[in-house]
Write a protein that binds this DNA or RNA. Structure first.
Lengths: 205, 205
DNA sequence: AAAAGTTTGGATAGATCTCTCCAGAACCAT
DNA sequence: ATGGTTCTGGAGAGATCTATCCAAACTTTT
């Protein structure tokens, strides 16, 4: 099914998704129509519906999947090795740097889509939720690694802690988006480090 | 300026705001047009623009202010007296009950508007941010009361803790909205209690 | 009761948006 | 090369949406 297009076609399709994602991130989903995407990509109306027979809804779902990847990539490479308190700190720095460079606008590439799509498109909501699952799994992996190294209290409820951390991150993004201030995200990430520290064994903080 | 309308007129205006808020909360902002609001309130097109000369954008801003109040009311009366660990627990229970009854859908009445309006309407973003400020101030007041009672570590950075708690709540709402599971909000609120407990003096937990 | 102001209903303009359809150009395999 | 497939361009139907405008009905005031 992914082989339905030639290399050229797949490139055009990607271009459409990328442009749609960028526009939605900058202006909000409601302000982005097919025509805006068409203009931004120098494509024709026919192409858009050729590559997305499901129309706008199908583009939007592709954007969700793209942004789920984007949100994770924004945190790499640190996201893949959150196995010490220092690595969590490095992860925090990267996330802040990325969103500082973006002007503290737009919120979470993935999370900001939740409020915009969840109520109108259940399938999109499912995709967003799946993205959160993968994200939380990365946190879990890091925390488990810490536990294996003896850096985390053995009794820690890792899945619950991972979800709490993800909630903190998402909430930090929401507050940041409303205020356009990186400070809000920074405070939330400080609390993440605090949570990790308080579940760590060597409580030297 | 608030006396521009008679009692009857003000009632109609309120009816419009309430209906718009409810529809937006249920279907998402992008799916709600003036016509939907008109139908839901059995009003005419003329009335809508009579009471909101600024058109759709003005209605939306009024909805933001209404939902800022709604979000706080959802947490009352506990929100006004978060001066002990028990009161935080009662607050948690109320919030869960309210959103459980709503089917764990829609997210935060206020916070869900951030992603939907912040990028397209700066004034709306300002109103949302102001709502968050009031919300955080309530948390601060409760925490300060705890400190005055000797229940909180004197060195606690209360404003930062309040912001972290608000971020947790907002993030919990985001995860809840995507998954339609009250469990996600519950986990976030558990973490709130944990944060409060860990900043409390008598660490018997 | 008359006048002034407010509220209500609805027609309609004007713009916008999604989506369908068709045809020509480019590409690829045999 | 040639036949089939994919890619591209654009016209236009059909629906929807915001907003304006005007006049009638109702309220309030004098």
């Amino acid at each position: 099914m992914a082989e339905r297009w030639t290399a050229k076609g797949a490139a055009t399709r990607s271009r459409i998704i990328d442009a749609a994602a960028a526009l939605i991130y900058e202006r909000g989903l409601a302000s982005v129509g097919i025509n805006d995407v068409r203009e931004a990509t120098s494509t024709s109306h026919g192409q858009v519906f050729h590559y997305f027979p499901g129309g706008r809804a199908e583009i939007l779902r592709a954007v969700v999947e793209r942004q789920a990847r984007q949100a994770l990539d924004d945190q790499r490479p640190e996201l893949d090795a959150l196995d010490s308190r220092e690595s969590w700190q490095a992860w925090r720095s990267r996330l802040l740097a990325v969103h500082s460079a973006r002007g503290a606008a737009g919120g979470c590439p993935l999370g900001s889509l939740a409020a915009q799509m969840a109520e109108s498109d259940p399938e999109a909501a499912r995709l967003i939720d799946a993205g959160f699952d993968v994200w939380a799994a990365h946190f879990e992996r890091g925390l488990e690694a810490m536990r294996a190294n003896g850096d985390l209290e053995p009794a820690t409820d890792v899945p619950a802690l991972a979800r709490a951390i993800l909630a903190l991150v998402q909430g930090g993004f929401v507050l940041m988006q409303a205020s356009r201030s990186i400070e809000r995200l920074s405070q939330a990430l400080d609390a993440v480090l605090l949570l990790v520290r308080e579940n760590a064994t060597d409580d030297q903080g």
